[in-house]
């Protein structure tokens, strides 16, 4: 669309910075990105950052300190559209494993002992635990193609509607043999597509790093893996690795039925 350039901010909460890095990894497109929009804030790329009203805020990382909660709320207030960028922002990331506050405390002590930390920490959560999120772009980290397509659509004023599909779809596009069928612990059917089935294309089962796909059949795959000889504990742990907070409802129901 013609007219004024969109004002964009890219923010990093707690995570590996991989999503911001993936934006920098769009080497060929980077000049066009900077030309197409007015990047107000992008700590990894520039010094002269302004925290003002924004059209779109891209937020990566999970919320792990009280200060980040405040920062995030401030970003929401300043932005018309907020996009959760990457697995940490969408589901809380791998660090969202300890949701039980007591367990979290216990593990926290294991690492930091009794030292009173100056910056109070909170249990790791995705950003939608605190603010309304308009779009989700999962991935650990996001993929370049997925980001560029999304970003371009946003710039042109028509963010794409989500059409959720599991990794299996891309996996078949790549003509891989089904690893699950071969008895491997593959999370492809439960994981949102976007990576292009990288792991199965390297003969490795999907670890689930795009987070849960909408409409995934967790119950069936759970029993299927059990049917293949994996232990219940093992399945539960492996399913939890990249699912963040998004499976809590499923486990509640699942455990109740058990």
């Amino acid at each position: 669309m013609k007219g004024k350039k969109l004002k964009i901010g890219i923010y990093e909460l707690t995570g590996c910075a991989g999503d911001a890095l993936m934006i920098l990894n769009c080497e060929k497109e980077l000049p066009a990105i900077f030309q197409a929009v007015d990047i107000q804030s992008f700590l990894m790329a520039k010094s002269d950052n302004i925290d003002d009203e924004l059209d779109v805020a891209l937020v990566e990382g999970s919320v792990t300190t009280e200060k980040e909660v405040e920062e995030l709320k401030d970003i929401r207030k300043r932005s018309k559209i907020v996009v959760a960028l990457g697995l940490c922002a969408t589901v809380g990331g791998i660090q969202a494993r300890f949701q039980d506050p007591q367990k979290w405390q216990e593990n926290f002590r294991q690492v930091y002992g009794e030292t009173k930390m100056e910056l109070p920490a909170v249990v790791s959560k995705p950003i939608d635990a605190y603010i309304k999120v308009d779009f989700y772009l999962p991935g650990c980290p996001i993929s370049k193609e997925q980001f560029l397509n999304f970003f371009t659509r946003v710039v042109k004023g028509a963010p794409p509607e989500s059409y959720p599909q599991p990794v299996c779809v891309s996996c078949k596009y790549k003509e891989n043999d089904c690893l699950l069928k071969n008895g491997l612990f593959c999370l492809g059917p439960l994981t949102a597509d976007g990576c292009g089935a990288v792991c199965p294309s390297h003969n490795l089962p999907c670890v689930g790093c795009w987070g849960p796909v909408q409409g995934g059949n967790w119950t069936s795959e759970f029993y299927l893996l059990q049917d293949k000889g994996f232990s219940r504990e093992f399945i539960k742990k492996k399913m939890a690795n990249f699912a963040g907070t998004k499976l809590s409802e499923f486990w509640k129901q699942f455990d109740r039925r058990d």
């Binding site: 599909q165 599991p166 299996c168 779809v169 078949k172 596009y173 089904c178 492809g188 059917p189 439960l190 409409g215 995934g216 059949n217 119950t219 069936s220 795959e221 299927l224």
Partner: peptide
């Protein structure tokens, strides 16, 4: 329906 993983493989192959 209870068992289907909605992976789409049947139709893609």
């Amino acid at each position: 329906g209870q068992a289907c993983l909605s992976c789409g493989s049947c139709s893609l192959v």
